Deep mutational scan, measured.
Amino acid sequence: CHSECLGNCSQPDDPTKCVACRNFYLDGRCVETCPPPYYHFQDWRCVNFSFCQDLHHKCKNSRRQGCHQYVIHNNKCIPECPSGYTMNSSNLLCTPCLGPCPKVCHLLEGEKTIDSVTSAQELRGCTVINGSLIINIRGGNNLAAELEANLGLIEEISGYLKIRRSYALVSLSFFRKLRLIRGETLEIGNYSFYALDNQNLRQLWDWSKHNLTITQGKLFFHYNPKLCLSEIHKMEEVSGTKGRQERNDIALKTNGDQASCENELLKFSYIRTSFDKILLRWEPYWPPDFRDLLGFMLFYKEAPYQNVTEFDGQDACGSNSWTVVDIDPPLRSNDPKSQNHPGWLMRGLKPWTQYAIFVKTLVTFSDERRTYGAKSDIIYVQTDATNPSVPLDPISVSNSSSQIILKWKPPSDPNGNITHYLVFWERQAEDSELFELDYCLKGLKLPSRTWSPPFESEDSQKHNQSEYEDSAGECCSCPKTDSQILKELEESSFRKTFEDYLHNVVFVPRKT
């Protein structure tokens, strides 16, 4: 048989008469490798580009789960590009990614509803959504962080984005990388972005840091009482949809009607710091009717980097990364020049730590249904340095008659930039024990000054392991946590139920 035959053949030295091919099969003959313009397919066939392209389009058009959109890589027609490569849609070739590779997620039936953290986790790592997304989240724990972890990498949506009755959302900033909504599939009414009845939605994105392009379709905003109209108009300008909307697409009466839409800028007039305090004062603000001013709200939190936005980490279910302080308005003076500047002394802060701070007014709604208010920009203030805590785990070892090696770990709280350490030492008198000992005694162990690591005695271990207080009263049991108490109650309830079950099964009433 021919060298490319495997198993047997019907005619000697003829690659077209093989029972099976050793390498690849091409047009009725066995070959060692697939010549151009053919590609290896499933490690035994040679196919042309049209064959591989037909497989790709067949799966793409069917949208069946589990099928493969075949691509070409290293002269092979394979189910998908290997790690580190992405497909070129024009020629199906796998090309190296520039940075992290995109991950295209194809949605069944063309859309997916995100109504819980669990459903959001199914899209973790996706960068391109081939379909439409509907966000409908009523509640949950730590929602802002969970949504950002699972949806934060999405850069492109081919269909539309719909935010509907998501009472738990305060902001859409968890879509931190969303840059493009194509609108290839539109919501009824030709809408590519749809926001309806979101009672706590206050911000779409921080438009000073976020760009969003909507290729096709219109915007729809109705019944978002805490979303200011200025935020919607800003989205029109940034996304390129200005002029597409009709009169009733953006409701003037049901958007922002319960919001404090600040239209003035508060400026800080005085800032002073110490290692654990920050004193702030800002310019006074009074609405047209000074009785509408209820006070100020001061927001602050630790910020290692200057990239904080107002609604980071917030949701309507209680999660809030900001510390909020309510401040009463100052006494009002008739003389504008003698107006008191409101302020606040922030206490209990960490030394040498940068804080993000902003302040906003708290006002009631005027009778004319106009909203007044003022808010400052987010500023960054760093507390002063102070003395560091003591170095940890000092170790001293003498390696000769004239040297001592000293080692330690950095302090747990540096409280500033540590530039150097101060080492103090003092000579001590020799131990009298060394002169009084009889060095001729056998088995004498000389006193040693070398360091030995501390260890816990058996008594201390027994005390720590004991669940009861000892007789001397030195140790006591740790208080039980809520989960331990709940577990004990469940076990007790189970024992009672099981005992009742045994009584009912074992003891049967005697027939009379």
Rank of each mutant, 00 (worst) to 15 (best):
K103A: 13
K103T: 13
K103W: 12
H106A: 02
E109G: 12
T113Q: 03
I114N: 02
I114W: 02
S116K: 04
V117A: 10
S119L: 08
S119I: 10
A120Q: 08
Q121S: 07
E122F: 02
L123T: 03
C126P: 14
T127E: 01
V128Y: 12
V128T: 10
V128M: 03
V128K: 08
L133N: 00
L133G: 00
N136T: 15
N136S: 13
I137L: 07
I137G: 12
R138Q: 06
G139E: 04
G140Q: 03
G140L: 13
N141V: 14
N142C: 09
A145E: 10
A149R: 13
A149L: 09
L151F: 06
G152Y: 15
G152M: 04
L153K: 14
L153S: 11
I154E: 00
I154G: 00
E155D: 04
E155H: 08
E156I: 11
I157P: 00
S158C: 10
S158M: 08
Y160L: 09
L161Q: 00
L161E: 00
R164L: 14
S166Y: 02
Y167T: 12
A168I: 04
L169A: 15
V170A: 06
L172Y: 02
L172K: 00
L172M: 08
S173H: 14
R176S: 12
R176L: 08
R179E: 11
I181T: 01
G183A: 04
G183H: 02
L186E: 09
L186G: 11
E187N: 04
E187G: 10
I188W: 09
G189L: 11
N190P: 12
F193I: 11
F193C: 02
F193A: 02
F193T: 02
Y194G: 12
Y194D: 07
A195I: 15
L196C: 04
W207H: 06
W207P: 03
W207I: 04
S208N: 11
K209S: 10
N211K: 13
N211C: 13
N211F: 03
L212K: 01
L212H: 02
T213K: 11
I214V: 11
I214K: 01
T215F: 03
Q216V: 14
G217R: 02
G217S: 02
K218V: 12
L219M: 07
Y223G: 08
Y223V: 11
N224W: 00
K226V: 14
C228H: 01
C228S: 01
L229A: 15
S230Y: 05
E231T: 15
H233N: 03
K234H: 14
K234N: 08
K234V: 11
E236W: 08
E237M: 13
E237Q: 12
V238R: 15
V238N: 12
V238C: 12
S239H: 03
S239D: 05
T241A: 14
K242I: 05
K242H: 15
K242G: 12
K242S: 06
R244H: 12
R244T: 07
Q245V: 05
E246K: 15
E246C: 08
N248S: 13
I250N: 09
I250D: 05
L252T: 11
T254Y: 05
T254H: 14
T254I: 14
T254N: 06
N255Q: 04
N255C: 09
D257S: 02
D257R: 09
Q258T: 12
A259Y: 03
S260V: 12
C261Q: 02
E262G: 05
N263A: 03
E264W: 02
L265R: 14
L266W: 01
K267W: 07
K267T: 08
F268Q: 00
S269I: 10
R272F: 07
R272L: 07
T273Y: 06
S274G: 03
F275M: 07
K277F: 04
L280R: 00
E283L: 07
E283Y: 04
E283F: 13
P284E: 10
Y285T: 04
Y285Q: 01
W286E: 05
P287E: 11
P287F: 08
R291K: 08
R291V: 10
D292T: 04
L293G: 03
L294H: 11
L294D: 07
L294W: 15
M297I: 10
L298F: 13
L298G: 14
F299A: 15
Y300I: 08
Y300K: 01
K301R: 07
E302V: 05
E302K: 12
Y305W: 14
Y305V: 12
Y305G: 13
N307R: 03
T309M: 11
D315G: 13
D315W: 15
A316P: 14
A316S: 12
C317H: 04
N320H: 07
N320D: 15
N320R: 04
N320F: 14
N320S: 05
W322V: 05
V324F: 10
V325G: 03
I327R: 02
D328A: 03
P329M: 12
L331S: 11
R332T: 13
N334Y: 09
P336S: 08
K337D: 03
S338H: 09
S338F: 14
S338V: 06
Q339S: 07
Q339D: 10
N340P: 07
N340V: 11
N340K: 14
H341S: 09
H341M: 05
P342M: 09
P342T: 08
G343Q: 13
L345Y: 12
M346W: 01
M346T: 02
R347N: 08
R347Q: 11
R347P: 10
R347S: 05
G348P: 09
K350Y: 07
K350W: 15
K350N: 07
P351Y: 13
W352A: 06
W352H: 14
T353M: 02
Y355F: 12
V359T: 08
V359W: 00
V359H: 01
K360F: 10
K360A: 13
L362M: 15
L362R: 15
V363P: 08
T364N: 01
D367Q: 15
E368K: 10
E368W: 09
T371Y: 07
Y372D: 06
G373M: 11
A374H: 04
A374S: 09
A374D: 05
A374L: 06
K375T: 03
K375V: 15
K375Y: 06
S376L: 00
D377H: 06
D377Q: 06
I379M: 02
I379H: 05
I379V: 11
Y380F: 11
Y380A: 02
V381S: 03
T383C: 06
T383K: 01
D384V: 14
A385L: 03
N387R: 10
P388F: 01
P388W: 01
S389Y: 09
S389Q: 07
S389P: 03
S389H: 11
P391S: 01
D393K: 14
D393S: 12
P394S: 14
I395K: 14
S398Q: 13
S400E: 10
S401H: 09
S402A: 10
I404S: 05
L406R: 02
W408K: 01
P411N: 01
